[in-house]
Design a protein around this nucleic acid. Structure first.
Lengths: 213, 213
DNA sequence: ATGAAACCTGAGTCAATATTCAGGTTAGAG
DNA sequence: CTCTAACCTGAATATTGACTCAGGTTTCAT
């Protein structure tokens, strides 16, 4: 019912109506990724965004109500990118442990190619807490379902009856990815994504406990 | 040599010289923890800090040059608190795996009692990147040394010759703590710190790979 | 061709607050 | 008691950048 433009929730109808408008809005989002990525949320200037996008200041407010609103749109956009990218890489994996290995390597490699990712998604914690949480909850949910499925197929150790361990395990694995991505993707590239993934996946698949050989 | 007040590097000599001064400075740091914790770096106001501390605005600038400087002092302070607290809890642990278990539980419990911790330490990433990195690098270094020692004593699986796995393992374990602390310490207390620690430690000690029983 | 919807423009407004400063108060050494 | 270093005070300043607005340009359905 009604001219809702197909979107959810109450957004103040700034959606572009023509191709030209959609292109401009896209340019603004991409410019925002650069500006926020380089200068951080608070130092970023709307004029910086419009300049990068080759648009006038007023144009910005044709598509977004506030600075915070572009930021939210951007976070959702990037959240979708990472998840898609990792899911794609993992697609053909023979089993869960292989998928973990491939997914982690792909993630670290992705971080290296998109250094603005962390700056933006992590800063969301302080600018738009809800989208930040949404990002990780979505990620964790998919992860938990994958673990549950693998457990159902008998591919991994069950951990706890009824899969009570699935969710904490999912969060632990995400924590590993995020921190290894930060350390070996962003801060220092002294190990390749593959090497890091090998070590981390051995940790979570074989465990630290010493075993009789 | 000379009247360096015992500190490192060039700090613009705002150190208090009497007991009265030290007390005031302390009050300001504690007030800053509250103000930054509740409102975040940018929304926090110096007047908010001085009001909480029961001091006049000018007093702030007797002890700190800028807003960023209190923030840095505060991050160092809190970094020290967490590390001390966890180290204390782990002290009597019989072996490394037990220490991991106790340390993780203590960390999550600590987070619940100091909800400002995340807001401040994570936001440091965008306000004073060097102290943020310093925090994690210090943490990771200690962690790596602990793992190397345990490996030397034959308490844990060696992983890779020459301990090449120690550092990535340390970062992975820190990632686990931080994310479980966020999810089960801050966001939702649906599992106790002990339950979370049990599951996570089982993951990294036994591994996900299914074994013949 | 034409009108109006959609889009674009950028100088100007205005609130917020970090930092300064000129001077008042306190405490303790001699 | 006296002097001064250390400490405290809060009104005034100065900058900054998000957001508004009044009007111009483009597009395309009819």
């Amino acid at each position: 019912m009604g001219a809702d433009a197909g979107r959810v929730a109450a957004m103040s109808d700034k959606e572009p109506r023509t191709e030209r408008g959609r292109k401009t809005r896209r340019r603004l989002i991409e410019a925002a990724a650069q500006e926020f990525g380089e200068r951080g949320y608070h130092d970023a200037a709307i004029t910086g965004i419009t300049q990068r996008a080759g648009a006038a200041l007023g144009t910005f407010y044709t598509y977004f109500d506030t600075k915070e609103e572009v930021f939210r749109a951007l976070v959702r956009d990037m959240s979708h990118s990472v998840r898609t990218h990792v899911a794609e890489a993992v697609k053909g994996a023979p089993d869960r442990l292989a998928a973990e290995r491939i997914g982690l390597e792909a993630f670290i490699a992705f971080v290296r190619r998109h250094r603005e990712l962390y700056r933006i998604i992590e800063e969301a914690q302080f600018v738009a807490e809800d989208v930040h949480r949404e990002h990780y909850v979505t990620f964790a949910d998919a992860y938990r379902r994958n673990l549950a499925a693998a457990r159902g197929r008998g591919e991994i150790a069950p951990g706890e009856k009824d899969g009570g361990a699935d969710e904490p395990r999912a969060w632990a694995l995400i924590g590993i990815s995020v921190f290894l991505g930060m350390r070996y993707g962003l801060w220092n590239e002294d190990l390749s994504p593959g090497e890091v993934a090998d070590i981390a996946i051995e940790l979570v698949s074989e465990g630290l406990r010493k075993r009789p050989s």
